[in-house]
Design a protein around this nucleic acid. Structure first.
Length: 313
DNA sequence: CGGTTTTGACCGGCGC
DNA sequence: GCGCCGGTCAAAACCG
């Protein structure tokens, strides 16, 4: 609920705290640094190549572990997804009537502590079955709503939430309950794609953008984040295998002081508390993800992996 | 020149 | 019925 969720949801790269993570081997770090430093000095070729081989082995090992992690992630993702579809099929389509627009919206943001990643899908199911029978079922199914909170630069006035899909803006409105304008987007990747998206700044935190997705894409994602040019706009990136969008927020490289305060004050202000450690890891991860080369390589690795492992189904 | 964004007009639902 | 409000349309402007 607190710092841990902030870290977990923002990026899966970091070693999660509850699993004994093979990757987390701090003892090896000094030796690595040592290698690098020694590397600068004059060394005999033998020593140098030995160090390199050792390094290579270590990296290989790490790679293997990362692969395992990824496999585990994929597995749990698949499990989760099947669970979700299971659940969805169980619930008769009385999820939420599309015409229930007035009120709600921003009034019940239920002050999430971490804005990084909040999906509020298929909110309350309150209407009676008779009501839902009136409406055409397809319409109701179409109205799958998921809400995504994305942190962006406060100065960034463009309501652009990069989620891998291609959107065409078709309108903008200033709504009553929020002075910042709301932008309306349609998925323009496929002409028949019914998905729409509304994007609006949060009323109580201008650095947070709320993106509301309606419907499901009836096409595949454009591509797995092509590695060309590394010019994916800063702000956010996402993995979107299918279905409702997940948005990861890499936007803030340096968490504002309040973030640190939140983390530190959550329970133990000690320097080596797990929260701080996680925070550090997060920082490292975010700085890594800032590097376009790294993200491109990671994307390539992940997509390759996913295609390798996908035959489950 | 084709696709996207902007922006005022328009439409339909809802409350009074 | 009327006015308010959110959502959408579409013409013009903009951009690569």
């Amino acid at each position: 609920m607190d710092a841990s969720s902030l870290v977990d949801t923002s990026l899966d790269l970091n070693p999660s705290s509850d699993r004994p993570l093979p990757l987390d081997t701090p003892k090896k770090e000094p030796s690595e640094n040592g290698n690098l430093i020694v590397f600068g000095k004059k060394l005999s070729m033998k020593e140098e190549s030995g160090a390199l081989v050792e390094e290579l082995n270590r990296v290989n090992e790490e790679n293997k572990k990362l692969t395992e992690m990824l496999a585990a992630m994929c597995e749990s993702y698949n499990a989760l997804q099947s669970q979700l579809t299971n659940l969805m099929s169980k619930i008769p389509e009385k999820e939420l009537s599309p015409s229930k627009k007035r009120k709600s919206e921003s009034s019940n943001n239920n002050n999430n502590d971490n804005y990084n990643f909040g999906i509020t899908g298929n909110s309350e199911s309150s209407s009676t079955d008779e009501d839902s029978c009136k409406k055409t079922k397809e319409e109701i199914i179409k109205a799958k709503v998921s809400r995504v909170y994305v942190r962006t630069e406060a100065s960034d006035t463009s309501l652009v939430v990069k989620d891998g899909y291609q959107w065409r803006k078709y309108g903008q409105k200033v709504t009553r309950d929020n002075p910042s304008p709301r932008a309306y987007f349609k998925c323009s990747f496929a002409p028949t794609c019914p998905v729409k998206k509304k994007v609006q700044r949060s009323i109580d935190d201008q650095s947070v953008v709320i993106a509301t997705y309606e419907g499901e894409h009836n096409h595949l994602p454009p591509s797995q984040m092509e590695p060309t040019s590394g010019s994916s706009r800063r702000g956010s990136a996402s993995l979107n295998p299918s279905g409702p969008t997940m948005t990861l927020d890499f936007g803030k490289t340096k968490p504002s002081g309040s973030d640190v305060a939140r983390i530190c004050s959550s329970s133990q202000p000690k320097m080596d508390s797990p929260q701080v450690r996680q925070y550090l890891v997060e920082q490292m991860a975010t700085s890594l993800t800032k590097d376009p080369k790294f993200t491109a390589a990671l994307a390539a690795a992940i997509s390759g992996r996913m295609f390798q492992q996908s035959p489950v189904e």
